[in-house]
Design a binder for these strands. Structure first.
Lengths: 137, 137
DNA sequence: TATTGTTATACTCTATAACTATA
DNA sequence: TATAGTTATAGAGTATAACAATA
């Protein structure tokens, strides 16, 4: 009986740790990248929407957003229709960052992927939507 | 051209976060579980071996080990052959914990897996060794 | 009153640097 | 000297609780 549950879980923990280690000094972290990509794809977002999207609490997301504003990648404006809400959008620098990052992709991860066999890459491509479903359930 | 790199990476980040959220109060965390399982499978380990296994630094692992000793799951003894080394082993309570955990597996993760289709589970099973390879590269 | 966001605070995990003991 | 482990310290990421503003 294979029961891959525990192995898979530990593997996922380990790879997340490994990816985190790859973040170079001053670079944009995973949580930050996720926010920038989300806004690029879907347009300006409220704080709550960003928090929901990344499965974090509003205070956590607020902090991430603050960092990105300090770095000049995002702006925050009070909504004109509902003054409780804020609208968080990319600056030109943010948009450029996303475009550049998408173009060259993530160096470490892409290099590792390139070293896999086509079959291994297929296995990952097939698993990705399943993992996403798992994360969102 | 699919280029799954970025999507996969963000999905992996998100699922790691989701798993972390599932840790109930007082439970054993992912890093801790990994250590207990490793010793159960391979016998007593040195601190360095445990650190290498989980891709963390010795100080990090030392801290994890200290927590597990405080909880009564591990013991630490100076090696008889080389007094610089320590031998870290499971207590009876630790062994029981591993056995119980292996028996009922991880509740949250197992439940989610059970809700997938057989094809989806196959996709994960095929991807697991590839992810592991990626983590270790 | 309920919703949206923010501030204050604290906890977990991890790292780097410096230190101790032993080989 | 080199190695194994430990201690001290700091940073990133996250959470909960309390608060403010608006609907």
């Amino acid at each position: 009986m294979p029961e891959p549950s525990t192995d898979l879980r530990l593997t996922l923990v380990r790879i997340a740790r490994r990816m985190r280690q790859q973040k170079a000094e001053g670079e944009v972290g995973d949580g930050q990248r996720s926010v920038l990509f989300c806004i690029q794809d879907r347009g300006p977002q409220t704080l709550g929407a960003l928090a929901d999207n990344d499965l974090v609490t509003p205070p956590s997301m607020n902090r991430t957003v603050n960092v990105l504003i300090e770095r000049g990648y995002l702006t925050r404006e009070t909504s004109t229709v509902d003054a409780r809400r804020v609208s968080i959008d990319l600056t030109d620098a943010g948009r450029t960052w996303v475009r550049e990052t998408r173009r060259r992709r993530d160096a470490w991860f892409t290099t590792r992927l390139a070293k896999l066999t086509p079959e291994e890459r297929d296995a990952l491509a097939l698993a990705e939507p399943v993992l996403r479903k798992l994360a969102e359930s």
